[in-house]
Each structure stands twice: as C-alpha cells, then as structure tokens.
Design a protein around this nucleic acid. Structure first.
Length: 357
DNA sequence: AAGTCGGGGGC
DNA sequence: GCCCCAGACTT
C-alpha cells in the first residue's frame, strides 16, 4: 500500500516536471542560479503577479546588480524604485537584509535554507525557493499555487489559511518533493498552478494529471481549496492639503506605523467619517496649522482608493495660506526634487497631474 | 490566531 | 463586488 502511494506521488511530480519543461514561460529569473538575483525576484513576486513584478525586477537588477550596490543604497531610493508595487515593507526589509548579508557574508548571498530563514523578509516559502533554485537544496515551496494544486489533486478540504491547514499542506509538499531535482519540482508545481490549475476556469481539459485529480473526478474544482475569510475593511477619510509657496510644495514624511511607512505624502487631516467641506475647514487643526486666513483655491472630487483592509476616501484641497506652523515631518520641496520622493500611488498620480509632470 | 501591509487583474 | 496574486511580520 505504501509503495503504491509512493509510486503515485513520484508519478505526480514527474508528470508536472515534464509538463513544466514543455510549457514553462521564459522568465528572466529562471536563467540564473545567482542567489541574489533569485532573492530579488522572490521578494518582488510575494503576493504579486508575474506581469506586475517583471518591470520592477528588471529595474532593480539594472540599478543594483549585486548585494553590495543594494546595501549602499538609501531607503528613499529603494522605496522610490518600489513605488507603485505595494507592500513597501518588502523594500525596507530588503535593505536591512542586503546590509546584513554584505557584512556577514561579505557580499555573497547565502544559499542555505537555514541561513536564509533568519533574514528579514524571508519566510518559509522564500527560503525554500531561494535554496532550491540556487543550490538545489531539498526544501519544498508552498505558495498560493501549491496550496491550490495539492488541495485539488488530493482533495484536501482543510482551510489553507488555518494553522492546522498550513501544517498539513507543508507536510504534503515535503513528501511530494522530488529529491533528485528539487528546484525543477518546485518551479513545476508553481508554474502548473499559475498557468493551468488556475483559481478560476482551470484548464482541466488539457491537464496531464486530471485522471488522478480528486477535484476533477468529484467535480470539486470550484470548492477547493477551502479558505477561511474574515476580512474586515475599514473606511478612512483622508483630506490632503496642497500648499504651494512659489515653486515649492509642502510635503509630509509618513512615520513607521500605518500604511505607506516612511513614504511621502501631503499635510493630512484624517476623519473617520465623511465630513462636509465647510465642517472640515472649520476644524481647529486647520487654523492651528495654517492660521485664520485660509483661502480655498480648489477642491478635488473624492477618490476611492482600495487597499486590502481599508477603503480610502481621498480628496485634495488646494489652499492659500499666510503662514504655516510646520509639523515635525513637514518640509518644503521644489518640483524637481519632488520626483525623487517615493509616494503612494494615489498621491503620486494626483501630484503628477497637478503639476503636469 | 488574528490583524496588517498595496496595487492590480480577472470574472 | 469579490477573489487572488511565487507571503511575512506584528500583536
């Protein structure tokens, strides 16, 4: 019985690897075993589609061809290059890791799972990916694709985002791993999930392993994998003030907490509910910052900006003021330097249009 | 164990 | 709208 199970599993891996070799996409990070380059690609691709991450990967490789050059960068430069990709802590953690690697390993990016897992921004998935792709270490990756492929093929209905579920899927992935070619096996599992065993409308018609697939046989494609979802979305109302003084604009550097940590936006008054323009302009905070003589030049419509846990209602209010009480993180910048600051997408778009950049 | 962190694409 | 994307970190 055990032997039959073993054979079945070996066949599964072999089938996927064969399918992979014939159908894989030609992606730039697949043509190297340079752990640094693979690290770059893996961090960029966390929770990010390949098409979205690709241009960022190319720009990062170009600008920072090795760990040393990355380690020497300023956080502002990393965040600027990361602008628009989201989950900015990835960029900030990369800088910490690059600097540590540069010191600890003298610029040679580690390839062993046990070394990688200790680094900031590298979890189980990424450590397994880097070690198996760069050095063929026998560690099985479990990403969103792998969860889906295993859940469907073996009919596992344990939620993939429960603690118990994660353990089960990791264990199954470990057992499935082809120890002769871990890197190839891992790539195959993920590519198969991404290209064929897709979340919606998987291509079961051309699937090489459908005859052994639980979900295909039992018509459970749409119900597997199972995921617990209790996503709470919060509404936030962001009122940004555009204050132009000659050729300079008043900017704010955000703090370490909250979204968009360490990035740049504008002076902000946040409310937890939709406030009318007149009520907003009567807020004491406004006169505290800008005095009594405030002239409204222009008010933008309210833009809805969707984040994972937040619905942002954003508007921009262009005002003319006599004097400004500078907050801790406020500063003036000219339009030239403006382009070097890493800004959240919605801020960047607005400013870009406003100044015709 | 639950909450937080972006932005975009497919349906 | 809702779900998902080569997840990790903090509380």
């Amino acid at each position: 019985m055990l032997i039959i199970l073993l054979l079945l599993r070996m066949n599964f891996s072999d089938e996927l690897v064969q399918w992979y070799i014939q159908n894989k996409r030609d992606l730039p990070w697949r043509n190297t075993n340079n752990a640094y380059i693979i690290w770059l690609s893996e961090i960029i691709l966390q929770q990010t589609r390949v098409e979205q991450g690709m241009p960022y990967f190319n720009r990062f490789v170009e600008k920072y061809p090795d760990v040393g050059s990355f380690a020497a960068a300023h956080e502002d430069d990393i965040l600027k290059l990361w602008q628009g990709l989201g989950y900015y802590s990835r960029g900030r953690n990369m800088l910490k890791t690059a600097r540590l690697v540069n010191e600890l390993y003298h610029g040679k990016f580690p390839e062993q799972y046990n070394q990688l897992i200790k680094l900031k921004g590298i979890g189980e998935y990424t450590a397994a990916a880097i070690s198996s792709f760069s050095a063929n270490e026998a560690k099985a990756v479990v990403d969103g694709n792998v969860y889906r492929v295993i859940a469907r093929y073996f009919g596992i209905d344990e939620p993939i985002n429960s603690t118990k579920g994660k353990k089960i899927f990791q264990q199954m992935a470990d057992e499935l791993l082809n120890h002769d070619q871990p890197g190839l096996h891992n790539q195959a599992m993920m590519e198969f999930g991404a290209m064929l065993c897709k979340p919606k409308n998987p291509a079961c018609g051309i699937c090489p392993v459908r005859t052994g697939c639980f979900a295909f046989i039992n018509n459970a494609i749409t119900t597997l994998p199972v995921k617990l979802n209790k996503l709470k979305v919060r509404d936030r109302y962001l009122n940004y003030f555009l204050i132009v003084d000659g050729d300079k604009l008043l900017m704010n550097k955000r703090d370490e907490k909250d979204v968009w940590a360490n990035m740049y936006d504008l002076p902000l008054i946040e409310t937890s509910f939709l406030m009318s323009e007149t009520d907003l302009l009567n807020l004491p905070q406004l006169s505290d910052h800008f005095g009594q003589h405030i002239k409204i030049l222009e008010i933008s419509p309210i833009y809805k900006h969707i984040l994972t846990h937040q619905r942002l209602h954003v508007r921009f209010i262009n005002i003319q003021v006599k004097n400004v009480n500078l907050e801790q993180n406020w500063f003036y910048t000219d339009v030239e330097s403006l382009q070097k600051l890493a800004m959240p997408k919605i801020i960047f778009i607005f400013i870009k249009n406003f100044f015709n950049l």
